[in-house]
């Protein structure tokens, strides 16, 4: 009985292992020509890139049908930790320079990072702006629940900079680990306002609205992208970064509210 159980267990394990390997080495059925990229490609991208990169992913796959493209979205520091711990990824797109610098300092990149998009901050409020928030100073009004990203997360660092520039002191009700969580808390009505990227307000739909932060108080976030040194699929990684920084990728990102990289 025990032996049979063990055989069954080993069989299941073997099945799992082969299935796992199958995912990694999946090849397209089309015969690959010399310059055609194939195989799996893993892209680690900042949470604020979610919608834009999903669209770019569809376009990229339409062009390179042999590529099995996967995105992993999280706050940039989380992704940096994963890279430092040896996550098998090909490309890293960060929401700020300091987190990209950590990758460069660790010698984990292949080639220099390229800025491919820029973003500005906006105050996110519930649709229709029921609390009548018009300025950064309004965030400190009594009774306003203000939410922001945690200090180590790019959007948190930027929000602090903007608040300092406006000389506004406000304690957030929470410190979210990524920018999408701030939008969620506001759209659910748990928080009244938050400081996020313009693109996140746009992606949030009708449940949320954006309040412009004037340029003299605003911060411009630069998004750098880089190919990772340990990339299992450097060829596809190069093709992807090329697509993002190229004219088609730039056009798609612009349609999601990102500012051009130049």
């Amino acid at each position: 009985m025990l032996r049979r159980l063990f055989t069954l267990f080993s069989a299941a394990l073997a099945l799992l292992l082969t299935a796992g390997c199958g995912g990694v080495t999946s090849q397209s059925s089309a015969s690959p020509s010399a310059d055609q990229v194939t195989g799996s490609l893993t892209v680690l991208a900042a949470a604020s890139l979610t919608d834009g990169f999903n669209r770019i992913g569809e376009q990229f796959k339409a062009k390179h049908s042999g590529v099995d493209l996967k995105f992993s979205y999280a706050g940039s520091p989380t992704l940096v930790t994963q890279i430092q711990q040896g996550a098998p990824a090909d490309v890293f797109a960060s929401a700020d320079q300091p987190n990209m610098q950590k990758v460069v300092d660790g010698g984990l990149n292949s080639g220099g990072p390229k800025v491919f998009a820029r973003n500005k901050l906006q105050i996110v409020v519930q649709g229709g702006n029921p609390k009548q928030i018009q300025t950064v100073a309004d965030l400190a009004k009594p009774g306003i629940k203000f939410d922001a990203c945690a200090p180590g997360v790019p959007c948190g660092t930027y929000a602090t900079t903007a608040l300092n520039k406006a000389n506004v002191k406000v304690t957030p009700v929470s410190q979210e680990d990524n920018v999408k969580a701030v939008v969620t808390k506001v759209s659910l009505g748990e928080a009244d306002a938050g400081i996020v990227y313009t693109t996140d307000v746009k992606a949030g739909g009708a449940k949320v609205a954006g309040v412009t932060i004037p340029d003299d108080l605003n911060v411009t976030a630069s998004y750098p992208i880089v190919q990772l040194k340990t990339a299992p699929n450097p060829k596809a990684a190069e093709a992807f970064t090329g697509y993002v920084t190229g004219s088609e990728g730039q056009k798609t990102l612009a349609s999601y509210g990102f500012l051009s990289s130049s």
Binding site: G152, V153, Q175, E176
Partner: peptide, 20 residues
Amino acid sequence: GNFPGTTQTAPLAIYIDLDS
């Protein structure tokens, strides 16, 4: 939520610390 002193318990602090 996650705010030091109010709602940031040890597991949350560990998660956020790992990221920063």
